[in-house]
């Protein structure tokens, strides 16, 4: 529908005070594919997500989503085009219940006036329950988010993205701090989600990446060091060098 790729990032660079955090980077994401980005700390992984979601503006280069240039758009406009992003540390509204958290993300009543007059409709309730089922939180709908475990908060944040039915999911360290079982569940969740969209995952956990990723991109000092299948990556001497160091 949009050529081969949903997201095209071409020759993207950003500079902070003379330091190139992302350097002439070209990257693609396609529907039905989980693409993992790995790399040592400071490689530019999170910065890349910041650039795609409009949190940081690039010094040069192009970002196209569904063929449209999204380079100059604001964060909320980019979200509305269909890009959902989960942050590194789980970011949910602690004082609200799971239900209210999901309801808040429901893509309706976004202006002050419609939010003021918003009434909970059948459609909203149904959608919320559907998503809660998917993220294993159906029986916690009326718990306050602050009572959830770390892993459950991660799921809740993913759920808040799903309710908007994004075409591209960007997940920053989705399994950080999760138990082994929760990791399994998350892997299953992502494999389910990717059936309808493109997923980009930034992650350190190699086993997790191996389990889910169709394609792995290794970043190093803002550039792509290598791209390919997990097996090829893990045996590549350059990658070993970057990770094991100096």
């Amino acid at each position: 529908m949009f050529g081969e790729f949903l997201l095209r990032v071409e020759h993207l660079s950003v500079e902070f005070d003379g330091f190139k955090a992302v350097d002439d980077l070209t990257f693609y994401a396609a529907k039905n594919q989980i693409c993992a980005i790995i790399g040592p700390n400071g490689a530019g992984k999170t910065t890349l997500l910041d650039l795609i979601t409009g949190r940081t503006s690039p010094t040069s280069g192009e970002i196209r989503f569904k063929e449209a240039d999204i380079g100059g758009l604001r964060e909320n406009q980019i979200v509305r085009r269909g890009i959902g992003r989960k942050f590194q540390t789980p970011s949910v509204y602690e004082a609200l219940t799971v239900f209210e958290n999901l309801e808040m993300a429901y893509p309706d009543a976004r202006t002050w006036l419609s939010a003021w007059s918003f009434r909970r409709s059948e459609a909203v309730v149904k959608k919320v329950e559907e998503v809660a089922e998917l993220i294993y939180l159906k029986d916690k709908l009326h718990e306050r988010a602050e009572k959830l475990s770390h892993g459950q908060k991660q799921w809740l944040e993913i759920g808040a993205l799903l309710i908007q039915e994004p075409d591209l999911l960007l997940l920053d360290e989705p399994v950080a701090g999760m138990s082994v079982q929760d990791r399994e569940l998350t892997a299953a969740l992502l494999l389910e989600l990717v059936k309808e969209r493109a997923v980009v995952v930034v992650e350190h956990d190699m086993d997790f990446v191996r389990k889910i990723a169709d394609r792995v991109t290794v970043l190093h000092q803002g550039k792509i060091l290598m791209e390919g299948k997990m097996d090829a990556i893990q045996s590549d001497p350059r990658v070993v060098e970057v990770y094991l160091g100096h």
């Binding site: 964060e75 909320n76 970011s91 509204y93």
Partner: peptide, 16 residues
């Protein structure tokens, strides 16, 4: 309240 406590999240949920 949500944007008082977690402004970024509200922004990245698509609210202006």
């Amino acid at each position: 309240v949500a944007l008082r406590d977690k402004e970024e999240r509200v922004l990245f949920t698509g609210y202006d």
